[in-house]
Write a protein that binds this DNA or RNA. Structure first.
Length: 884
DNA sequence: CGGATCGAC
DNA sequence: CTATGTCGATCCG
């Protein structure tokens, strides 16, 4: 993403502050100047643990530099001359391999996420906006950048820089769709193009250029889009006025004249544009088509290799393009004064180290090639040499197989920990690690991993409260490592870490688990990509985990406790079922149960039938375990393919179901008796609420600074469990589960980044009580008006009112945590669920919760000062007392 | 192999 | 109150 690069592009000498701030001072009249920006950032930053850690890291880099300089001192002129000869010999060889025959294009969407959000919400167009959350921004629009608001900046700092900043939550589903649209266009020019994330791609258009020479004009003619009257004109005007200035090389036809074309709304020749056959024209065409199709602009670079192409696309951004002609001199000219930091692969640290050697530009990099070969590793200095000669890969390699898979999460409640630490296997194979359970606070990390490949190495990552990162790995000797084993190993690693700091508590703000060292491609496909082998083997692959609670029991109940569980769980289920009967119709689980029964009963049977039939090669009817539709096929492969498609396609269906649920949630909201809003008109508010509920992303609300990803994920999972009365027992369930957590994980490996976050909105308080500032909020529990502009404090108030007995609360997430003794927990309950019950109870009793119960959590800060021993014993007691 | 670090998105 | 999540690559011991 261009934004992040710009952040990182800042000069390094000035340390961390400047990296955060604006380097190119383009501050407009409304913006802030560089000094002000850095001052604000400094004020928000200084003294923080994060800042201290940044300083420490800077010092470490300085030490590395010092070491390097000492090494440099020892180098004799003789050594240098010898190295010079060797390197120059290599240079000659490299020159011979120089290949200028390919035409590589790098396409980069301008401020992608922000641009999409602005396109879809015209209100945002004139405002400074950023996409992300209060804790981290992904990108910002050009308005916001004038205030110094950049990608990779925490939202709360951005707010200080630009108080009017609108922070839009991420919506990866949407970006994915747009990205797909763009990719469809790109594929026409190079079917093997290489996407890099959602907003970037490399194309090799060498072949296309050859073919294109023979194309008639009509095949190169494209029409202006007349179906998108909304804002296209404006959009283009903005683009050309604001962005398309200076040395931008875009076609004048495209970006200046086209507004007049657009006013005519017919597909006549006047409304079209014909592109030439040169590389520039092709890229203009691509960008034109992208803009016509998505109303978004892209920048592009054209060059003989990928490295150069990437740097070119940066040259005239936004909404511009640049070409390095395929001549050696053109390449060298381009590199001559180019700062090395612009080169992909050279980051903050390398820049600083090279700068210490007096190297800032690429030509200086070439001049110092002999010295570099003595100071850096072979791989490094050869890479430097390639850079300074302008060499890079001229063809696009397909992505290799994935080498590791990891998940990490920030805690839902930071900075508390004790030695007590429990791994829970939550519903649906999400792993929850409870680092601390105390009277006041539940601290947990959540990992949810599906279809984990079989790997040999498990790595645990920890970031402590001082932002220091540690990784601890262990390699299992045996060739396989199942999901349970992975987490068992991780647990051991964590255990040793806890012991290593004992008796002090391990205080961490982030934990991650990574698996690497996969067995083979075959194994991997089998494990994570497809269900194809599910039916093939006839064995019960995949079934063991579907068996309800088996692994849970094995994992946690090593003693006789298990015998109690049946009855206990049954009671719980009965209670929950009772509750659910009173829920709105859509909440009812009847349909689900029907599916469950049907499939769990029949599926094994059918599988067997099918397997046997397969051998006899007879065409038979088969009920797909996912869609429940009958499929006739004589080919097992075909059936498997159908199931795969069904699994992937389930997403659509699930979205619908989810939105139905949201509808009912909305109904629930409408029934909230005491909620009104005086400043906004009711419809508007309702609309906002609906929008919020309909979102299928992480739903981190703008005003919710506490709820982070983990909370949302967790809420979602708990919520998902709560309205389901059975453990997953069939493929349909698993499929839904897959969709819920990793909607398309099983389809393609490459797309994880956005798919992973496509899960549905969680059920946190913030979801319910989001309102615009100035609203008068009435607590639905105690029925008193809360005059506060801060949603945070309002939510806190509601929590205090709500907090009672078995409700365990953590960071805007309501979790009911039931303790069954002997380390066995069950998590269930959602806010929605509990609220319902609460309101029923209230309407009968017409009373308010005793405020004194709020003290349970109000000790949140004081617990920090409690001595360790007390804390420990407290926490032990608490669990038992609390969940009695 | 294990651990730390860099760089990109 | 509040500083991401993932992945690959490399270097060093």
């Amino acid at each position: 993403m261009d934004d992040k690069k710009k952040v990182a592009n800042s000069s390094c000498d000035d340390g961390f502050l400047l990296r955060m701030g604006l380097n190119d001072n383009k501050a407009g009249m409304q913006g802030l100047d560089k000094e002000k920006i850095n001052k604000i950032i400094m004020e928000a930053t200084k003294g923080s643990r994060f800042y201290e850690n940044e300083l420490k890291k800077d010092q470490q880099v300085n030490q590395r530099i010092e070491k390097m300089m000492q090494l440099k001192e020892k180098i004799t002129t003789q050594q240098l001359l010898k190295a010079q000869l060797q390197v120059d010999k290599l240079v000659v060889e490299l020159e011979q391999t120089r290949n200028l025959s390919s035409t590589i294009v790098h396409i980069d969407m301008d401020a992608f996420y922000a641009a999409v959000e602005m396109r879809d919400n015209p209100e945002l167009k004139e405002k400074p906006i950023a996409v992300g959350s209060m804790s981290m921004l992904s990108t910002s629009n050009y308005h916001a950048r004038r205030f110094g608001v950049r990608a990779a900046m925490p939202g709360f700092i951005a707010k200080k820089l630009c108080p009017h900043l609108t922070i839009v939550p991420l919506n990866f589903e949407k970006y994915g769709k747009v990205s797909k649209e763009v990719r469809e266009i790109l594929a026409e020019y190079d079917p093997n193009f290489m996407p890099m994330g959602l907003d970037e791609a490399y194309l090799n258009i060498t072949e296309h250029l050859e073919e294109r020479l023979n194309w008639p004009e009509d095949r190169r003619r494209f029409f202006f889009n007349t179906e998108n009257p909304t804002g296209v004109d404006k959009d283009d005007m903005n683009m050309s006025d604001k962005f398309n200035e200076g040395e931008c090389s875009s076609s004048p036809v495209l970006f200046e004249d086209n507004t007049s074309h657009l006013k005519q709304r017919s597909q006549s020749v006047e409304n079209s544009v014909v592109f030439g056959t040169s590389a520039e024209e092709v890229v203009k065409e691509i960008r034109f088509r992208i803009e016509q199709k998505t109303q978004l602009t892209a920048s592009a670079g054209i060059a003989p290799n990928t490295m150069l192409a990437k740097m070119c696309s940066d040259r005239n951004k936004p909404n511009g393009q640049y070409r390095i002609t395929p001549e050696r001199q053109a390449v060298l000219d381009f590199l001559k004064d180019l700062p090395i930091r612009k080169v992909p692969g050279i980051g903050k640290v390398t820049e600083k180290m090279l700068k210490a050697l007096g190297i800032v530009t690429c030509s200086e990099l070439y001049q110092q090639r002999a010295l570099l070969s003595l100071l850096f590793s072979e791989i490094s200095w050869r890479n430097f040499l390639d850079i300074s000669l302008g060499l890079g890969s001229t063809h696009l390699e397909k992505d290799g197989e994935r080498k590791s898979m990891s998940t990490e999460s920030a805690p839902c409640c930071a900075q508390i920990s004790t030695r007590s630490c429990l791994w829970l296997k939550g519903p649906y194979r999400c792993y929850i690690i409870i680092v601390s359970v105390s009277m006041t606070c539940l601290t947990f990390f959540l990992f949810y991993i599906l279809f984990f490949p079989k790997g040999k190495t498990v790595t645990l990552k920890l970031k402590n409260v001082n932002f220091e990162v540690k990784t601890r790995a262990s390699t299992v000797l045996s060739s396989v490592s199942t999901e349970e084993e992975i987490f068992a190993v991780a647990k051991d690693l964590l255990g040793t870490e806890i012991d290593s700091v004992a008796p002090h508590p391990l205080r961490i703000r982030l934990m991650g688990v990574r698996v690497s060292g996969f067995l083979s491609e075959e194994e991997k496909k089998y494990q994570q990509k497809s269900i194809t082998s599910f039916l093939k083997s006839g064995k019960e692959i995949g079934f063991p985990r579907l068996q309800p609670e088996k692994s849970n029991q094995e994992y946690f109940t090593k003693s006789s406790e298990a015998s109690h569980r049946g009855s206990f769980f049954d009671q719980k289920r009965a209670a929950r079922l009772l509750n659910s009967e009173n829920l709105p119709p859509n909440e009812a689980v009847g349909k689900q149960l029907f599916h469950d029964r049907k499939s769990s009963a029949n599926f094994v049977e059918e599988t067997k039938k099918l397997t046997s039939l397969q051998s006899s090669n007879v065409c038979k009817i088969f009920t797909c375990p996912v869609c429940f539709e009958e499929q006739s096929s004589d080919n097992l492969e075909e059936l498997n393919r159908h199931i795969d498609e069904c699994l992937n396609g389930t997403f659509v269906k699930d979205t619908m179901e989810i939105s139905k649920n949201d509808k009912s949630r909305e109904d629930t909201l409408n029934t909230l008796p005491h909620f009104r809003n005086e400043n906004e008109n009711g419809d508007e508010w309702q609309k906002n609420k609906t929008d919020q509920l309909a979102r299928t992303d992480q739903s981190a609300s703008m005003s919710d600074s506490f709820t982070n990803n983990s909370t949302e994920k967790f809420a979602q999972i708990v919520s998902d469990k709560s309205h389901r009365e059975q453990q997953p027992s069939n493929l349909s369930d698993i499929a839904r589960n897959v969709e819920c957590l990793f909607p398309k994980r099983i389809s393609q490996g490459n797309e994880d980044h956005f798919e992973k976050t496509e899960h549905t909105a969680g059920t946190s308080l913030s979801c319910f009580f989001e309102a615009k500032e100035g609203s008068v909020l009435v607590c639905p529990v105690c029925n008193t008006e809360q005059k506060t502009t801060s949603l945070v404090s309002f939510n806190r108030h509601v929590d205090v009112c709500l907090n009672k007995g078995c409700i365990y609360y953590s960071s805007y997430l309501l979790v009911q945590l039931e303790y069954f003794g002997n380390g066995v927990f069950e998590l269930f309950g959602t806010l929605r669920f509990l609220l319902q019950a609460r309101f029923r109870a209230l309407s009968k009793e017409q009373q308010c919760t005793n405020p004194s119960q709020g003290t349970k959590r109000s000790g949140l800060t004081t617990s920090q000062s409690v001595s360790k021993k007390t804390k420990l014993s407290n926490s032990k007691h608490t669990i038992k007392m609390f969940f009695k």
